[in-house]
Design a protein around this nucleic acid. Structure first.
Lengths: 172, 172
DNA sequence: AATTTTAGTCAGGGGGACCTGATTAATCGA
DNA sequence: TCGATTAATCAGGTCCCCCTGACTAAAATT
């Protein structure tokens, strides 16, 4: 059991990180008042983009399942993405009830740009620090995965399958 | 300039961290279907709570300034917090135009509970790792602060004054 | 062929973060 | 004193995430 003071300290830094991150985003967001993009890849439309960039051509139902959303929510986000020309809908020929969702080229670009960018602040770290950071985050992430897994195995599986693995493809 | 592969790797872990964090929150959120709380301390209502927990008894105008929001947005969030009994409004006696916002006991509790909790996953780290993590996050946060500072000094000052310092009070 | 299940859609709702514009009430300054 | 500034409010709007209920069209089942 590690030293309490250190833990408090680390917890504070972590919160501060979240805070200052959010602020930097906010700033970027207002700075060039972008066209509508720039939002969390972990919910809503972003989530769908992320899932599709691993497995393209899913049906809405499958998306809904993997992302633990209702079919209606999924439909809503998909439609918004269609309007932004990031994905396309087409009726399945094998089962005409199904609608297949595919990333457009633009969508694919957007999705990978989103996740593949390396924050500038990593340039300020030494190789040693990067190694340490990677090791630590791996531990932390695994703890969190465990937590999710014990509380809701179903979510965990879907999530792991459709998104987490994805990151490895990109970054490792 | 650090090794590119390491940077990519670290960036991936960081994204993964955000993702799995978000998911864990989501889970907690749905698990006991709480009364309305549980949202980001970095925007809207949470932001106000945070600011007040450092400096209680600010006027709406002051809040709006520090948090870089319009007076109207501030009023909206304050009113929502009042409905939740987390803050109280009272007319200033010295300047009857002003409304002084104060945390209620419940609000104070909520705010500190929010930030003072130490994530369980830190227990899985060794003392050495905690030290490393703290050092690394300090560097990262400072980089981000610099970024914000050069892009918008005004925001930076307000933010630093009303929130960032706060964390030190709690955690160090 | 008749029934049930499945994939999606429409309609509508709740809550959240923000914002602009117009208006009121107090206080300040010339 | 009287007009200007200041703190707040009301009204209304945009966009986001996400859900329930009701309904259609296309399978699958019996």
């Amino acid at each position: 059991m590690p030293n309490l003071t250190k833990k408090r300290n680390a917890a504070g830094k972590l919160i501060e990180y979240g805070m200052v991150q959010h602020m930097a985003d906010d700033l970027a967001h207002r700075r060039h008042a972008n066209k509508g993009d720039q939002q969390s890849p972990f919910q809503g439309q972003g989530k769908i983009l992320l899932a599709l960039s691993q497995t393209d051509g899913l049906s809405q139902k499958e998306l809904a399942n993997r992302l633990n959303m209702t079919a209606q929510s999924t439909a809503e986000f998909v439609n918004k993405l269609v309007k932004k020309h990031l994905v396309s809908k087409e009726k399945s020929t094998v089962d005409r009830r199904k609608t297949i969702i595919r990333l457009t080229d633009h969508g694919r670009q957007t999705a990978s740009k989103e996740s593949a960018k390396i924050p500038a602040y990593l340039d300020d770290l030494t190789d040693t620090e990067l190694d340490q950071l990677i090791a630590i985050l791996t531990k932390i992430n695994n703890s969190l995965y465990d937590e999710i897994h014990t509380e809701n195995p179903h979510w965990f599986e879907n999530f792991q399958r459709s998104v987490a693995d994805h990151l490895r493809d990109w970054f490792l």
